[in-house]
Amino acid sequence: MFRTNVIDMVGLPGMFGEGQCHWDQVTRILRSHWYHLTLQHHQEGRTYEATLMVDSEPRLQQILLGQGDDLRVTDVLVVTPSHMNGTSGWQMETLVEATLGEDENECSVCLLEVHTGAIYHSSHVAGFNRDSLTNLHPIYQASMIR
């Protein structure tokens, strides 16, 4: 989840369109992964590009399923904290596949395969083994973008 503060709002609510606000910055409290999407929106013969920061797999899936002639996802990156990617800091990498499953406690766990072939997981269980997941279902595959 991303959090905003009213002092970071640019302009007045609605000045960029009904229901729209712009922000100088957003805050993220949790040290969990999120998605950075590039979208192309086609409207009245023009193409607009936008970046969308997505917090969860259900929201990512909703956006992917919502693609059509006027809106398409052109790039999906995953941003992972150090405890997931095994480095000393956050990393942004091209996402190849995202899969959800359940661990032995029936908690949702996400498996993330990135362009290097590395596979990260969202579990906080010590000694986690991804082969122990059940009810696996893909949320994203690179072939889902155009």
Rank of each mutant, 00 (worst) to 15 (best):
H22T: 08
L71W: 02
H115L: 04
V26R: 05
Y120H: 09
V125F: 03
L111T: 07
G45K: 11
Q61W: 04
F128I: 10
Q91N: 10
E44K: 15
L133S: 10
L30T: 11
I139F: 04
V114K: 09
V78Q: 00
S56G: 12
H137P: 05
G86Y: 00
A142W: 08
I145R: 05
R59V: 13
P58W: 00
D75A: 06
L71Q: 04
M15H: 06
E93S: 13
N135D: 13
D24V: 07
I7T: 08
V114I: 12
A118P: 01
E93F: 00
Q61K: 13
D8M: 14
H42C: 08
S82T: 07
R59A: 13
C110K: 02
L133F: 03
A126S: 10
E97C: 12
G117N: 09
L52C: 15
G45E: 09
T51L: 08
M84R: 11
L65Y: 00
M15W: 00
L95C: 14
E104Y: 05
G19N: 14
G66D: 15
Q43N: 08
Y35Q: 08
D70C: 07
S122Y: 04
D70E: 08
N5Y: 03
H33A: 10
F2P: 13
L52M: 15
V6G: 07
S32H: 06
C21V: 14
G68W: 05
G101V: 12
F16K: 15
I7D: 03
M15N: 05
L133A: 07
A118H: 06
